[in-house]
């Protein structure tokens, strides 16, 4: 990269900045000039105003913004951790013990292609509208990548090492514990982000359909009350929260991976 290109990079940054700025200005303009009716879209300014208002105001949807965020966070944390706690050991065992694999895999393969969203009606039926149903959907969503990655990780462990351990007389459980699990770790860490992304989508879907609190519910209420700014606020908060959680999980993953190398 030569000097001239360096200057260009700075220009490009400003172009990106302008691009976002123009997007926002156009948005503001088409709303405040009345080109788009306010039943369809609210201006960025009114969304910002609503944001500060919703920090303390429980109307019109029944909870403050903080309460919605908290409810969503709680659901995703529970579902995500549950998926990891059950999915990873299950995947590891399936990868190592052929009998478990043979028994569990057919059912797993049957469940896998069902999009988590398709579980929502059943979850509503089973658990009613509320936390349990949400967590269940999120759990189902996160389970699949957790199992698959742990399973693949075990399959990828070095056969030479396993052979060596066998000649030293290690038991199947010992080999599993000392060779397979450590070599599956990179794949397992790889599952963290994938599972999170799926869980996040599931959370939104679950809250849209089967919830009485949470960011997804906020969005639904916005639609029912014909308040686009409520919808947009919910979407933006989803984006920001999703970004932050993703960032944190990424940091954790990096930390864990660098711990592996040492």
């Amino acid at each position: 990269m030569n000097g001239r290109e360096q200057v260009k990079v700075k220009n490009l940054f400003w172009i990106s900045f302008l691009s976002i700025l123009i997007l926002i200005l156009v948005w503001q303009f088409i709303v405040s000039s009345g080109i788009v009716p306010s039943t369809m879209l609210d201006s960025p300014l009114s969304v910002i105003r609503l944001f500060f208002d919703k920090l303390t105001n429980v109307n019109p949807d029944g909870a403050t913004l903080g309460a919605h965020v908290l409810a969503s966070l709680q659901a995703i944390l529970l579902g995500y951790l549950l998926a990891l706690l059950i999915g990873i050991p299950l995947g590891l065992l399936m990868g190592w013990y052929a009998v478990i694999d043979g028994l569990v895999r057919p059912i797993f393969e049957l469940v896998r292609p069902i999009p988590p969203v398709a579980w929502i009606p059943l979850a509503i039926f089973w658990f009613g509208i509320g936390m349990t149903g949400k967590v269940y959907i999120i759990f189902i969503g996160g389970l699949v990548p957790a199992v698959i990655n742990a399973y693949t990780g075990v399959l990828m462990s070095n056969p030479v090492l396993i052979q060596m351990a066998k000649t030293y007389g290690a038991s199947k459980w010992q080999i599993f514990k000392t060779i397979c699990i450590p070599s599956a770790l990179p794949m397992i860490f790889g599952a963290l982000q994938v599972a999170l992304a799926i869980c996040w989508t599931c959370l939104v879907a679950a809250e849209l359909l089967a919830s009485d609190v949470g960011l997804g519910y906020l969005i639904t209420m916005g639609r029912r009350l014909l308040l686009p700014k409520l919808v947009i606020l919910g979407m933006l908060m989803l984006g920001v929260t999703g970004f932050i959680i993703g960032y944190i999980v990424d940091k954790i993953e990096r930390h864990l991976v660098s711990g592996l190398r040492r």
Partner: peptide
């Protein structure tokens, strides 16, 4: 690279928002 500079930030902005979250807006 100019097209990239203009459009990439917009995509990055929308990326963490699951598509399902657009349902309500779409219905409105």
């Amino acid at each position: 690279q100019y097209a990239r500079a203009i459009m990439k930030p917009v995509f990055d902005l929308f990326k963490p928002m699951p598509p399902i979250a657009w349902i309500s807006l779409a219905i409105l």
